[in-house]
Each structure stands twice: as structure tokens, then as C-alpha cells.
């Protein structure tokens, strides 16, 4: 009787541990050594040989970029290595790869877009303001409106930034760390931040 109960408990514990570790591995893109550039991690939906990438692509519902389309970079942490929070404000600042069509999208970790009447979900290389000879961007993100390029995070429970660079050559030669912007924390709304 005791052995049967122990067998059931061991089986349940094993299944729980297996599912929990699988969930964690799929949610954590650093688990299987995804390529990172500074604080940005590269998503590779076409990596057929990697079962974790395939599971991740399925979880995202598809829609990632193929190698001749460009590359997709995401970050869920700020420059000080803390998780991005929807209740906090951030400044995406620094250079963007030159001569490439890029789009920066603000969403939650499940890909849901913010709710705002202007339907402003991010910026692109064609509408973002740039500064200085290096054409650096300064895009604010948060719940309180800020001057300049701004994306409201209204309605989001978590925060993810997706930078898509549309160029077939980038799959072979990804941009370097100093060609990509950083996400600097600007402060948190104390009511919403945990």
C-alpha cells in the first residue's frame, strides 16, 4: 500500500517537474543559448533542428521572420538587467542599424499590444525622430505621456520590446552591440510596480 502511494507520488512529482521545466525552458530564451547582442536576444523561428525554438515558435503562434526577411530581437530586461515592468517608464536610446528598415514594437510577454486610441504600438525607421550624426533614437515607453516619441503601455500586464530589422543580409551578419539601442529605466509608478 505504502509502495503504491509512493509510486503515485513519484510519478506525479516527475510529471510536474517535467512540465514545469519544459514551460520554463520555452519561456526563457536564454535556456538553450539563444544568440544575444547586448540586452537583445535573437529569435529564430526557422531553427528547425532546435526543438526548443520550434516549441517557442508554436507558442508564439508563428509569424516570426525567415532568414531572407530579416531578424527579430527581443528584450524583456532593462539595461540594469532588471525585468521590464508595464508600470515603469523606460527610454529606448541609442543607435539603430543604418540603411535598414526597422520597427520597434511594444507588447506584453504574450505578444498582446497596448490599448491606445492612436493605435501607436511602436515606431519605425521612417517615423522615429533621430538625433545627432549617429542618428540615435529616443523613444519613451510608459503609462504617463512624455515629450518626443512616446508609446503608452496602457492595458499591458508585462512588457516586451521587439526590434525587427528587415534586411536579408542581417541573418548572416547580425548587428553589433554598439549598433543597437539600450533600454534605460526612467522610474516606476509606485501603485503599479511590485
Amino acid at each position: 500500500m505504502f509502495a503504491t502511494i509512493r509510486l503515485i507520488l513519484v510519478t506525479l512529482a516527475g510529471v510536474f517537474l517535467g512540465l514545469a521545466s519544459a514551460w520554463w525552458a520555452v519561456a526563457n530564451i536564454h535556456f538553450d543559448g539563444a544568440q544575444t547582442i547586448g540586452q537583445w536576444s535573437m529569435l529564430e523561428d526557422d531553427a528547425k533542428a532546435n526543438p526548443y525554438e520550434a516549441a517557442r515558435a508554436a507558442r508564439r503562434g508563428g509569424g516570426g521572420l525567415g532568414p531572407s526577411e530579416g531578424i527579430e530581437l527581443i528584450t524583456e530586461t532593462s539595461a540594469d538587467n532588471k525585468p521590464l515592468q508595464a508600470a515603469c517608464a523606460y527610454l529606448v536610446t541609442g543607435p539603430m542599424p543604418q540603411g535598414v528598415l526597422w520597427t520597434l514594437t511594444v507588447s506584453d510577454r504574450d505578444g498582446h499590444l497596448p490599448v491606445n486610441p492612436a493605435r501607436r504600438f511602436g515606431f519605425t525607421s521612417l517615423d522615429a525622430m533621430t538625433f545627432g550624426p549617429a542618428r540615435q533614437v529616443r523613444i519613451s515607453i510608459g503609462q504617463e505621456v512624455r515629450p518626443g516619441d512616446f508609446v503608452a503601455t496602457t492595458g499591458l500586464s508585462s512588457l516586451r520590446l521587439t526590434l525587427r530589422l528587415y534586411s536579408p543580409t542581417l541573418a548572416a551578419r547580425a548587428p553589433s552591440r554598439d549598433q543597437l539601442p539600450s533600454v534605460m529605466p526612467l522610474g516606476c509608478d509606485q501603485r503599479g510596480a511590485s
Binding site: 516527475g14 510529471v15 519544459a22 516549441a55
Partner: peptide, 21 residues
């Protein structure tokens, strides 16, 4: 035994996820 079951479940969940999403 717990670790073995966890490992098998982990592998099965990862491999089956794309076709059962």
C-alpha cells in the same frame, strides 16, 4: 525515478508542443 520521469515528460512536452499547440 522522479528525475527520469521528469526528464521524459520534459522531452515529450517539448517535442509535442509544435504539433499540439
Amino acid at each position: 525515478a522522479t528525475l527520469c520521469i521528469a526528464g521524459l515528460t520534459h522531452i515529450a512536452a517539448i517535442l509535442l508542443a509544435p504539433s499540439h499547440s
